[in-house]
Amino acid sequence: MRLVMKDSFVAMGVAILLFFIVIATFATVLAPYGPYEVMMTEAGRLDRLARPSFEHPLGTTAYGNDVLSQFIHGSRVALIVGLVAAVAVGFVSTVFGVVAGYFGGLVDDVLMRITDVALSIPTLPFAIVAVSLLGPSVQNIILVISILFWRNGARIIRSAVLTERERIYVKWARAAGASHFHVILHHILPNIVRVIFLWITMSVAFAILAEASLSFLGLGDPTVISWGQMLNTAFSSGSLRTAWWWVVPPCIALTLLVSSLYLIGRGFEEQTNPRLRRY
């Protein structure tokens, strides 16, 4: 933890991530209104597209919902979908990539042909069919995203393992009597962790965007609001270019969340790779 604090980039990344985690955890307390609560003007009309004011710090949407409240509640879906899907993707990719790359030969052939088949699945059509068959819910979206994105990661991680496998210290460890498990745990994984971390960080962005795309197509979980859905309602209501208070917050939040993970990944790499350490 001391090391984390010394690196200002990591500290920033951790701070941003913690900020969103706090918001998501206490969403019900922090949000002034319900995400779909309809705002009325004093004249009794729908309070549409109101500019930011004291009552509505981030204004209202075209349907009279409070943007701040939607934004706060939306962080939950982003974190859950983004993080859970990314971790699942990272795990499956790592297992496939490491096993295929390390053992090579027939194992590699079989696993990579499975990956080839998975790679040939068209992303969005598959997601649409799968989500509509399984039913639109956050869990199903996470499942579909995991099924769709492990394949590229498996390839990337496999290629990293292929170079690590040829290192002389791997050869040495085998000659010294180390088991495959020992070699993978002590020599392969520590040296490819940066690749895995980078892939997980990228998967977070993919997952959040995929969730937004599915929401846009009406396949998002209708019971919860997400940042992707906010953007898509803004788009479909035609106010993407006028109601900046509606569009900017989710965009900035998505960018910050993804970059915070990137910063953490980068700092992690710097701390664990002695060649990059700064004194």
């Binding site: 002389i168 210290y169 010294a176 020992h182 790779n273 002695p274 060649r275």
Partner: peptide, 27 residues
């Protein structure tokens, strides 16, 4: 035991000297 030609890639860059020499004992 075997000692290899290239001392630059025969040691895992992520382990300290102590850990590297301890490894065979752990294995």
């Amino acid at each position: 035991q075997i000692i290899f030609q290239d001392p630059y890639s025969s040691l895992n860059p992520r382990l300290t000297i102590g850990q590297i020499i301890e490894e065979p004992l752990k294995i």
